[in-house]
């Protein structure tokens, strides 16, 4: 299978490239033309491809002319739409890095473009593939947990430093709320089986990084149509000097007990005398690998991989509402294009 990787802008591209290059039945071709516009010192382009040991072409036209079966889009958030639409027009299945888009209008257009082209669109939300989370979802959907009364989550990390665009609102669309709300709302989307979000409240600040052009800390509360409330701490609050980038946790108040899921707790930890630092040996499945395998299996079989573009629209709508709430200082309704929340309750 021919797989094209568009852009090394998102640092997850590096992991995807290594994993795809190691798959025996995958031919990988990459391109990263926008690397020329990145600040000096940021990796990218042909040099990074050479470092990764993957094939490279200079332009997206060449990349898509190669006739890939599948395209993985790892560009800056606000460029996702252009690249997904180009990939769909070339007839390739698309896996797009999260968030799918920075506006509901863009996300909806991307889904429409892929549907028109008859290609599947998947969004890269790997954490839903965590065995710990999958077990929670299976238990809930089997009725073992009874009612879910409330959900809280944390997705904290260091302020992204390897790529300047993460804190550039024109390329990222926003800061911590854009980057760290969507994993948890994707997980709750699948946990609750697609029950729509109806109301959102958010508050945020940039006290941790006062010079930042985007918010670096925030609390987002999502109310779903069944009355469930989800509260997310999406802050980039992990100190930059910390040995671990951050993490994600999900806590559920259920009839069966108060459940905490920490997908990144699967690790052997200790201390290294040589490094004078913590030792942390993660184990269990590589979630990015599971994500890619799910996507490529769907491409092979012609099925629709989950999370699909509609999950991307729903998660984007929540983030869009969060910004509206924060800027207006009030609780706001979630607007889904062509589908008012009240109509789907």
């Amino acid at each position: 299978m021919k797989v094209a990787l568009m852009s090394f802008a998102h640092t997850h591209a590096l992991g995807y490239a290594r994993l795809l290059a190691a798959m025996p039945d995958v031919e990988l071709l990459t391109s990263d033309p926008d690397s020329a516009t990145r600040p000096a010192g940021e990796s990218g382009g042909a040099a990074l491809a050479a470092e990764l040991g993957v094939d490279y072409v200079a332009t997206y036209d060449e990349l898509l002319a190669w006739g890939p079966d599948a395209v993985v889009v790892c560009s800056e958030n606000t460029r996702h739409r252009t690249h997904v639409e180009a990939a769909a027009a070339a007839g390739a299945a698309v896996l797009c890095e999260k968030p799918l888009a920075t506006s509901v209008a863009d996300a909806t257009a991307m889904v429409a473009a892929c549907e028109a082209a008859g290609v599947p669109l998947m969004v890269a939300f790997p954490v839903r593939f965590s065995p710990a989370f999958a077990d929670l979802r299976d238990q809930y959907q089997a009725g073992t947990l009874g009612r879910v009364h409330a959900i809280t989550g944390t997705n904290n990390g260091q302020v992204p430093a390897a790529r300047a665009w993460f804190t550039d609102p024109t390329l990222a669309g926003g800061g911590a709320m854009t980057d760290h709300t969507v994993h948890l709302v994707d997980m709750v989307d699948t946990l609750l089986g697609g029950v729509p979000a109806v109301r959102v409240h958010a508050t945020a600040n940039k006290l941790l990084h006062p010079d930042s052009a985007v918010e670096t800390a925030g609390i987002v509360t999502v109310t779903y149509a069944d009355g469930t409330n989800l509260t997310i701490d999406c802050s980039w609050s992990r100190p930059a000097s910390h040995s671990i980038w951050g993490g994600l946790t999900l806590s559920v108040v259920s009839d069966a007990g108060l459940i905490d899921v920490d997908p990144f707790a699967a690790r052997v930890s200790g201390w290294s005398q040589i490094e004078a630092n913590e030792l942390s040996l993660g184990y269990g499945p590589n979630l990015d690998e599971t994500l890619l395998a799910t996507f490529l299996d769907a491409v092979r079989t012609g099925s629709t991989p989950q999370p699909d573009g509609h999950v991307g629209i729903r998660t984007t709508a929540i983030v869009e509402a969060a910004y509206r709430s924060w800027h207006e200082g009030r609780t706001v309704e979630v607007a889904l294009a062509g589908r008012p929340a009240s109509a789907v309750v």
Binding site: T228, N229, V253
Partner: peptide, 17 residues
């Protein structure tokens, strides 16, 4: 503030931001 819907069991979860 948000709070879980009333439940016959008495379980209640609330969040204040």
């Amino acid at each position: 503030a948000v709070r879980s819907a009333p439940d016959p069991s008495g379980t209640v979860a609330a969040q204040v931001v």
